[in-house]
Each structure stands twice: as C-alpha cells, then as structure tokens.
C-alpha cells in the first residue's frame, strides 16, 4: 500500500471540550491547558488517539477540559490505570496529569514504578508546592518553613525534588518547565510527546490562592535571568542577565563561577541529555534557588525499551516458538485419564 493519508489537521480549539473550565482566575493551570492543546494540535495524531488520565487535585480536573478520551481516576493512582491501558493499547498517546500531592505523596509508589518500567506515558506533574483543592495545606514539595493551616509554625519536612526522584527511578526522559514561559512549555510538551518511554515533566505552576508567587524568583522578568538556567544539549551551562555566569564542577559538587578572570567557557560543565549515566542530570536536579540557578529544560533523554513493547514481544516470541494457544491443549496441560 502506498496510499498517502493526509495527516489530520487539528487546531487547539478542536481539542477543547464543551465543559466550563473551573480553575481559580489566574491559576497557572490555564496556561498549561492552552499550551497542551497547542502542542498536541501540531503532532499529526488524530484526536481519538489521545488519552488523558489524572488522579485527584486541581490539576487532575484537566481531562474534563480536553476533547479527547479522558479518565479522572482516584488519588495518586493515575499511573496504574494508564499502565493497564498501555499494556493493551501501545498505539495510544497516553498522558498522565498529576500534581505534587497526587504524584509524590499519595501516589509516590506508582509514580516510581511507572518510571522504572519505562511505560510509554507522558507524566506531567504540576508542581505548585501546595495542596490547593483541600484549601492550602503544605505539600511534599513545600520548602521547609512553609506556613499553612496544617503547619502554622512552618513545615518541618524536607521537600522532595521531583526530578531527583524520577532520575533515581531511572527515568528515560526528565524535564522541567514553567507555566508562564509559554513557548518553552509548548516545546517541552512536544519533546515529551516525541519521546518513546516514560517522559516525566515537572511544571512550576503558580497557585494564585494558596501559594502565590512561590516561583517568582524564576518567573519575574527582572530577576529570573540570574535565577534560572536554560539547559541546551551540548552547550556549556551559562546563565545570568549578562550571560556571564556559569556552572563549574568542583570535585563532585557544582559551583557558580563568573566568566572572565581566567575562567572561560571551556571550564564550564557541558550539558549532555544523552549521557548513559544520570549522574550529571541528578546533580543538576539538586541545584536549588537561592544557592544556585534552577535548571529549566530537558535534563535527560535516553532510549530504553518500553515495558509494553517487551511484554508484547515476549507474547509474540512465545507464539512464534510454540504456536498460538488453543484451549484444548491448555485443558489437557496436566495428565488426563478417560472414564468410560
């Protein structure tokens, strides 16, 4: 067959459901929804092939607003349902929408196991460092000292770093982006879509009501250039308003250096998202404001077979080796005898 099928041309509007969007005015989720529709519309994938699966929380209302297949599941369990779906339908583009509470607290176990299996899922974690839907308790990513209704004297537990966790589970694609950096967000979602395997994307997302401005250092135009570092594969780690600062390795630790005075671009760490070992990506995931600029972009992008492909191959190989199973053989798979 050499018939050429015209790729479906979708517009972002085609991907909008008829349901009224009910996030708070000014919520970062609106931007993620808009960029998602923009990113997906350009992929050439028909609408019925997209499935959005979410857990519980503000972010998890996301599937209702997409005119695709969608499943708003239960708290923390979206990766498990997406896993079952993918085992049967590896052809679908399956997106897991989760948040810092849903994905890292109640659902932490499922998240790491989906990642280690390298299921072909796009997991988008909206990190607002707060519980929004339950009205403002601290979350597993809240910084120490965060004062909320459940931590009136300041939270005392060390926050999880989502990307460090994903890398620890051997994620094959790890990225971070910002709700307000719409172009970077769109491009990151497209990169995630193009990755075969688990793509884990952390989105810094502002909660206007309960944690407003928590990412201001990374989003405020007057300061962000000194506080974030945009990763580019094969390029040295340079940042700053004047592009005069960089990250150098000192022993096993990164350090911020100023270019000049004997320090050249060649002295800086060079980003390599394809590195076999996730060590450098992990090191970047540990860089936290205000001691370091926080990295934005793709930390890691490597290839590894997906769980569902290996499983299906095992099935195909078994059938090739022993033939497709017939019930009469199965029933007689133990010794039998005949009663006359």
């Amino acid at each position: 067959m050499s018939t050429t099928m015209a790729l479906p041309t979708l517009t972002p509007k085609d991907l909008a459901s008829d349901q009224e969007v009910r996030w708070c005015p000014g919520c970062g989720d609106y931007s993620i929804l808009a960029q998602m529709k923009k990113a997906l519309a350009g992929l050439g994938i028909p609408r019925e092939k997209f499935v959005f699966i979410s857990g519980i929380g503000c972010s998890s209302r996301f599937p209702y607003y997409m005119n695709t297949y969608g499943f708003h599941t239960i708290h923390g369990r979206a990766p498990t349902i997406a896993t079952g779906l993918k085992l049967v339908r590896p052809d679908l583009s399956v997106w897991v929408i989760t948040g810092d509470g849903d994905g890292l607290s109640i659902g932490g176990n499922h998240l790491i196991h989906a990642i280690r299996r390298n299921m072909d899922l796009k997991i988008i974690l909206f990190n607002n460092e707060i519980y929004g839907l339950t009205k403002g308790q601290y979350s597993p990513t809240s910084r120490i000292g965060t004062r909320t209704k459940s931590s009136p004297l300041g939270s005392i537990d060390t926050p999880l770093r989502p990307l460090s966790l994903a890398l620890g589970a051997d994620a094959t694609f790890v990225a971070r982006t910002l709700d307000v950096d719409v172009n970077h967000l769109t491009e990151t979602l497209k990169r995630a879509a193009a990755h075969k395997g688990t793509a884990f994307v952390e989105v810094y997302q502002n909660c206007k009501i309960f944690n407003d401005g928590v990412f201001e250092y990374a989003t405020d135009k007057s300061v962000k250039a000194d506080n974030v570092l945009y990763l580019q594969h094969g390029r040295p780690l340079v940042f700053g308003k004047d592009r005069n600062k960089g990250i150098r390795l000192h022993g096993l630790n990164p350090e911020v250096v100023e270019l000049g005075n004997g320090i050249a671009l060649d002295d800086l760490l060079v980003h390599d998202e394809k590195a076999d070992e996730p060590t450098l990506a992990y090191l970047l995931s540990r860089m936290v404001y205000p001691h370091f600029p926080e990295c934005i972009g793709v930390f890691r992008c490597v290839e590894r077979p997906t769980y569902e492909d290996v499983l299906n191959k095992q099935m195909d190989d078994e059938i090739a080796r022993r033939g497709a199973g017939k019930l009469e053989d199965l029933f007689a798979s133990d010794e039998t005898w005949v009663v006359e």
Partner: peptide, 26 residues
C-alpha cells in the same frame, strides 16, 4: 502468554486493580 494473556506483577494491590481498570477502559 501464547494464549493472549498479559500478566503484570504490580507494585502493590492498588496498582494491580488500577491496571485491571485501565485494561477494561482499553
């Protein structure tokens, strides 16, 4: 497997039923 059976040893009991529900959805 050659009878078309896919098994998943899930990470916990909840994941096991989650995968079963996901398969049913599929």
């Amino acid at each position: 497997k050659r009878y078309g059976v896919r098994t998943l040893q899930a990470e916990d009991e909840i994941a096991a039923i989650g995968a079963a529900i996901g398969a049913a959805f599929a």
